[in-house]
């Protein structure tokens, strides 16, 4: 409902965002009916990608506190003015098209792995990601309730980020469970950092959503390049269980949906660094999807 809400809102309060193209899609059709308020400490970020009607240069916290203060000085009830119709409409969007996938008994769906990871860690783990489908499924299905629990390479989008970032996060927060959600392509980009984790006794959990493809590029090739899967095949990959063992980590492999939970439990409970390699549906795609440059309300569904 996020995209549809933006398509139909009449006021957008944007705080600490820079209106990246991956967020706005076609800028002409982004929040066409809305007055936009933009709060940012960096004056060069304001008006950079989108015209805003009410710019505020300053710290987000100071600005939000200031707005709250001014509202408290008035009658706070006035601000819930006529809201019900809008909230009902959003509820309808929520009910009719939630994020969805279907898990059968044969092939593991990557979304299922993330949902089970969320349940088993009670939403309390720090999640780092690589870049691509693994990153999007983590963002969609690990329902982040607290700040600083999702460490990902956003604008730069650098593969090979998740494992060293997990090591850094665990070094900073030794009492937290830290999980790198990875793809079979990305994990190979900085796999050598497994040795760092082992040597420094920094316990990180690596979940590989292994579809034997560079999945996000494959998805674009499927949708926009007539399924010409040019150099996105990754069938020739190391045996990740043996690789983990070679570094002195634990390696687990899971190929069946009914073993997903037990594999995750074993990996999460293991005291030390572990790779959990999940053989997932090879051609599963991330949906919904707005083609690059499209309006964010013009989404491809499953």
């Amino acid at each position: 409902m996020a995209n549809m809400s933006i398509g139909h809102c009449d006021l957008m309060i944007a705080a600490g965002v820079r209106f990246d193209d991956r967020v706005t899609g076609n800028i002409e059709k982004f929040a066409p009916e809305a007055k936009i308020v933009q709060i940012d400490i960096d004056p060069t970020s304001i008006h950079k990608n989108i015209e805003v009607q009410c710019p505020i240069v300053g710290d987000c916290k100071a600005a939000l506190k200031g707005i709250i203060q001014l509202m408290e000085d008035k009658n706070p009830e006035d601000f819930k003015n006529d809201r019900q119709q809008w909230l009902n409409r959003i509820e309808e969007w929520k009910d009719t098209t939630p994020l969805k996938y279907e898990q059968d008994s044969v092939v593991i769906k990557p979304q299922f792995v993330i949902e089970k990871l969320y349940e088993l860690t009670k939403g309390d783990a720090i999640i780092t990601t690589e870049v691509g489908q693994n990153q999007m499924w983590a963002a969609q299905y690990y329902h982040f309730n607290k700040p600083n629990h999702f460490i990902t390479s956003g604008g730069l989008g650098v593969m090979g980020f998740g494992l060293p970032a997990a090591i850094g996060a665990k070094a900073a927060c030794p009492d937290k469970v830290v999980v790198d959600v990875a793809g079979d392509g990305s994990i190979q980009m900085n796999i050598q950092e497994l040795m760092t984790a082992i040597e420094s006794k920094i316990d990180v959990k690596i979940v590989i959503l292994n579809n034997q493809y560079l999945g996000m590029v494959r998805q674009w090739q499927e949708l926009f390049y007539k399924k010409v899967y040019s150099f996105t095949h990754m069938e020739n990959a190391p045996d990740f269980v043996k690789l983990a063992e070679a570094y002195g980590a634990k390696g687990l492999r899971c190929t069946r949906p009914d073993e997903v939970v037990s594999t995750l439990s074993e990996g999460l409970n293991y005291e030390g660094t572990v790779i959990m390699d999940f053989a997932v549906d090879r051609e599963e795609s991330v949906y919904p999807m707005v083609p690059a440059g499209g309006a964010i309300t013009e989404m491809l569904l499953v």
């Binding site: 409902m1 995209n3 933006i6 991956r22 999007m136 919904p288």
Partner: peptide, 9 residues
């Protein structure tokens, strides 16, 4: 929000 943001009907 965004390219892989949540849709709804």
């Amino acid at each position: 929000l965004g390219m892989h943001g949540q849709y709804e009907y």
